[in-house]
């Protein structure tokens, strides 16, 4: 299935003989639109990165955001990594992302495998139980009461557990597991392998791509967690990076820096703000290209089978 789709998705890169040649106007319009779309994404990113690396003088000359770099001044990064709110928030977010992704993948992969065998005991009712979450909405108020009632207020688990299992991701992984030839699993079973062993030794090695994509989805979700932190985290020392980003960049609060020697000249506020934006984007931008090529396969498979 996935192989078929993948080959189908690769279009021949030559114009078929029956297709008319594009008109110059059509070609120009097409090029303009696509260039505009790409620039709409790249220009803000570029501006933010360049400004974060600019000196006070460059920023003053530009009158604010800088688009044309003049030299590199990394003092904004030195400042935010020197300790204080931003550094702490980065550690918190890293911890939540790593732990959360691990917990989520564990729960989701186990459940997806447990639900991958039609005809097993309770299969239909369990599957219904998981899929029903798409129709029934938990509600903000009772969710808040449940999480605080469990004593998770100001605990980092409040950023992980409520979103630990995404049924959509589960459906995607389950579809992938079901596409693995059953004969392979049956022969292992005859050889006396238990289900956990089959999952670890046979199924998982065949499912690296889909696990990577789902893992990325989870990781991005945890890195981006903001609203749950607004709800459940009151302790400033446990704020994840998105809360800090919001308070520094959108609400204009000044961050504190603890590790700088007394008397150090502060880098321009705008550069610091933009540096915070960059560190909030960076992990996503770095991991993304490696996993991007798997998206289409993973997402489509889930969409078609789910």
């Amino acid at each position: 299935m996935s192989v078929q789709l993948a080959t189908k998705l690769r279009k021949p890169s030559r114009r078929p003989a029956w297709e008319e040649k594009p008109t110059p106007v059509g070609l120009a319009v097409k090029g303009l639109v696509l260039t505009a779309v790409v620039l709409a994404v790249l220009v803000p990113l570029w501006t933010v990165v360049v400004t974060s690396l600019s000196s006070r003088q460059t920023i003053n000359e530009a009158g604010g955001l800088v688009m044309i770099p003049k030299g590199i001044d990394a003092s904004a990064y030195v400042t935010i990594f020197s300790g204080g709110t931003v550094t702490k928030a980065l550690w918190i977010s890293t911890l939540v992302t790593v732990a959360g992704t691990a917990v989520s993948l564990l729960l989701t992969v186990l459940a997806a495998y447990g639900l991958s065998r039609p005809g097993s005991l309770g299969h239909r009712s369990l599957l219904f139980y998981f899929l029903l979450t798409f129709l029934i909405y938990p509600g903000l108020v009772p969710s808040y009461l449940v999480v605080t009632g469990l004593g998770l207020k100001d605990s980092l688990w409040s950023l992980i557990l409520p979103t630990a299992v995404s049924v959509f991701n589960l459906v995607v992984i389950r579809a992938f597991f079901q596409a693995i030839p059953q004969e392979l699993l049956d022969s292992a079973r005859i050889d006396g392998a238990g289900e956990l062993r089959i999952l670890i030794r046979i199924v998982l090695p065949l499912s690296k791509a889909v696990i990577a994509v789902v893992g990325l989805f989870y990781a991005v979700g945890y890195w981006n967690t903001w609203f749950n932190a607004l709800l459940y985290i009151d302790d400033n020392d446990k704020f994840p990076i998105q809360r800090i980003l919001q308070s520094i960049v959108l609400q204009g609060q000044s961050p504190t820096f603890s590790g700088l020697p007394v008397g150090t000249a502060m880098p321009p506020t705008l550069a610091v703000k933009m540096a915070v934006v960059v560190v909030a984007v960076a992990p996503i931008a770095i991991v993304y290209p490696f996993i991007q090529r798997h998206f289409v396969k993973g997402v489509i498979l889930g969409a078609i089978k789910g």
Binding site: L110, A111, G114, L126, S143, V147, G194
Partner: peptide, 16 residues
């Protein structure tokens, strides 16, 4: 074993 594997995820959904 399949039921046991499904259980933790099912519990998280039950609670949250």
């Amino acid at each position: 074993p399949l039921l046991l594997m499904t259980l933790p995820g099912a519990l998280v959904l039950l609670v949250f």
